[in-house]
């Protein structure tokens, strides 16, 4: 099958959904303000991005700044979660005394929804970037941690034996055997984590922060600008998709050795 016809296949479902939505909106079944047509949303979105006719009012031309402030929060919280989740995950997976000391605490904190931390986060960090970053960290940390632990624990014991037979110290075993062996699992955690990170940035911005895509979404809801609400939702989806694609790209570069032996090789 040619590449062109394959990309055509990918477009079928989105195009059908958009067309149906446009028709329903224009039919007048619902008030236009409550279900704006895709064309209206696109117009408002475009003004929000480029600022040509003030359709988006105060938000006109401010999309890049909004997207950037959300992205910065995601990057900061996610970055901290990756560093701590991977390091702590390796420690818990490798040393059983660390597991005994820390695991019970972590397993008790894990089921607490990150969103329920919002009041505490606001008291601790005030209303600004910090509570949002803290929330993003909480959301991304646990999936990364759990998957890292799993990856370390399922590392092939025979590879560790082989490496210690070649004179590897404990630190070298962790760096040259355990970490690469856990990497497929770590990447699974990173991909779950990035989804959680966007989810919590937006949540935090609705409640505790006065900027970002989530703030615009909630603010537009107050002013009944459903076209902007939908544009904000689409923006978040788009950015989430792009960051996930970046992680996938990084993953296929780091795990290229897997391609010959797994289903991925089908995709080419």
């Amino acid at each position: 099958m040619t590449a062109l016809s394959k990309s055509w296949e990918r477009a079928v479902v989105p195009v059908l959904i958009l067309a149906a939505w446009e028709i329903v909106s224009r039919s007048g079944l619902l008030p236009a303000a409550l279900l704006p047509a895709p064309s209206v949303v696109l117009h408002s979105w475009a003004d929000w991005v480029f600022g040509f006719d003030e359709t988006a009012q105060a938000n006109s031309g401010r999309w890049l700044a909004d997207a950037l402030s959300s992205a910065v929060r995601v990057a900061a919280g996610y970055g901290i979660a990756v560093a701590t989740g991977v390091l702590l995950g390796i420690a818990i997976g490798w040393w059983s005394w660390v597991e005994r000391a820390i695991e019970p605490t972590i397993q008790m904190l894990r089921p607490v929804p990150p969103v329920s931390w919002i009041p505490v986060a606001i008291i601790w960090f005030g209303i600004a970037n910090k509570p949002a970053i803290f929330l993003v960290f909480l959301g991304a940390f646990f999936p990364i941690l759990m998957n890292t632990i799993h990856g370390v624990k399922t590392a092939d014991r025979n590879l560790i034996r082989a490496a210690s037979m070649m004179g590897a110290t404990e630190q070298q075993l962790l760096r040259h055997v355990v970490f690469p062996a856990a990497l497929p699992s770590i990447f699974a955690g990173l991909r779950i984590g990035i989804g959680a990170a966007w989810m919590l940035t937006v949540t935090a911005e609705m409640v505790a922060v006065k900027s970002g895509l989530g703030y615009v979404l909630w603010d537009s809801y107050y002013f009944l600008r459903y076209d902007l609400v939908l544009a904000a939702m689409a923006s978040i989806g788009l950015l989430g998709y792009v960051t996930d694609a970046l992680i996938k790209l990084l993953m296929s570069a780091a795990l290229h050795w897997q391609h010959a032996s797994t289903l991925q090789s089908r995709e080419g």
């Binding site: 025979n158 082989a162 490496a163 210690s164 037979m165 055997v177 690469p180 032996s261």
Partner: peptide, 18 residues
């Protein structure tokens, strides 16, 4: 303990797949 003064070849080759 294990060490590099002895080489070992296992029943499964135990190569680092990466």
């Amino acid at each position: 303990g294990p060490g590099a003064d002895r080489g070992m070849v296992f029943q499964q080759a135990n190569l680092m797949p990466w």
